[in-house]
């Protein structure tokens, strides 16, 4: 998508080596837009349309239901917990990988990608196996009044697992490219390790970190598969927004389902708008530090 726009916005008399003939350009752009509208815009409109089929009042009323409210609250609080934790983990992992040499590093890089390659359902099942009532540890947890599976901690764990790579993956290439020289310079100037991190490392990675956080947040709110397995789907307690949508839908409450879906889509949309706005406002700074 990002590649379609600049091509069109750059009229040039002299063709550069990589510029295609006009016809090819036109066809490619048309194709791009067609695919986008069929696959993205149309379904999105359909979701909003379906939600508003019986009018605003009805749609909003469905959001006022205690179960719906509980689902929204749960999703927002899980995201509010998971995103900062994964930001911390992601920074730590990227720091360890890019700023030091140690054995087993390549192995850890592979491990970070694991959540990308494992199906979320399988990930969910892993947590059930480890912490479920059928395992010794899980039984002890239940007995001591702190169950993980079929409870909020399980949802948080599953979401943490699924969204782990987002921030680390965003940071590692940027930190690799920047190298260690600035940090070393700061050390020779007398700064302590933590001061170097706060005044040199963090400002240099802030854009990558922001992207990672936004992506992580979007996925944390939207995750279905892994959360569905560990949640137990107790209404009002362990049902997140995506799960709630499915339940409403299966109960033929289509306005409620699509209204909740619209809210989720809007949350994601706000995230994207925020990202674009920041990109636009700091365009020159971004170009100066790294190309994204």
């Amino acid at each position: 998508m990002a590649h379609c726009v600049p091509l069109a916005a750059r009229p040039r008399r002299l063709r550069s080596a990589t510029t295609e003939p006009r016809v090819v350009k036109g066809v490619l752009i048309a194709l791009c837009l067609a695919v986008l509208s069929v696959l993205l815009f149309a379904p999105l409109i359909a979701v909003f349309d379906e939600a508003l089929r019986r009018g605003w009042a009805f749609a909003l009323a469905s959001l006022g239901e205690p179960d719906a409210q509980a689902a929204i609250r749960l999703t927002l609080s899980v995201a509010a917990l998971v995103v900062p934790l994964n930001a911390a983990f992601g920074i730590a992992a990227a720091w360890a990988i890019t700023k030091f040499d140690w054995r087993g590093k390549a192995w850890v890089i592979t491990l970070i990608d694991l959540p990308f390659s494992i199906s979320p359902v399988v990930a969910g099942l892993l947590f059930v196996l480890m912490f479920g009532a059928n395992s010794a540890f899980g039984a002890w947890l239940v007995a001591s009044g702190f169950p993980i599976v079929f409870a909020v901690p399980g949802i948080v764990l599953a979401t943490l697992f699924i969204t782990f790579p987002f921030i680390a993956r965003e940071l590692i290439p940027v930190m690799l490219e920047q190298g260690r020289a600035e940090e070393e310079a700061a050390l020779t100037l007398g700064a302590s390790g933590s001061r170097v991190f706060l005044t040199v490392t963090l400002p240099n990675i802030r854009w990558a970190l922001l992207y990672g956080v936004l992506l992580c947040n979007a996925r944390a709110m939207g995750e279905f598969g892994a959360v569905a397995v560990v949640s137990g789907k107790i209404r009002g307690q362990t049902t997140t927004m995506p799960l709630m949508i499915e339940m409403f839908y299966n109960e033929y409450l289509s306005v409620a389902a699509f209204t909740m879906a619209s809210v989720l889509a809007l949350l994601a949309f706000v995230t994207l708008v925020l990202k674009s706005a920041l990109e636009w406002r700091h365009a020159d700074q971004l170009a100066a530090t790294h190309r994204h």
Binding site: A181, E182, E184, A185, A186, L187, T188, G190, A191, S192, T199, V200, P203, N204, A288, T289
Partner: peptide, 19 residues
Amino acid sequence: TVQERRAGFVFQSYALFRH
């Protein structure tokens, strides 16, 4: 430690803080 040395170090690529 590097901080205790108080050596003024000029790096090959200068390593100025870009931000």
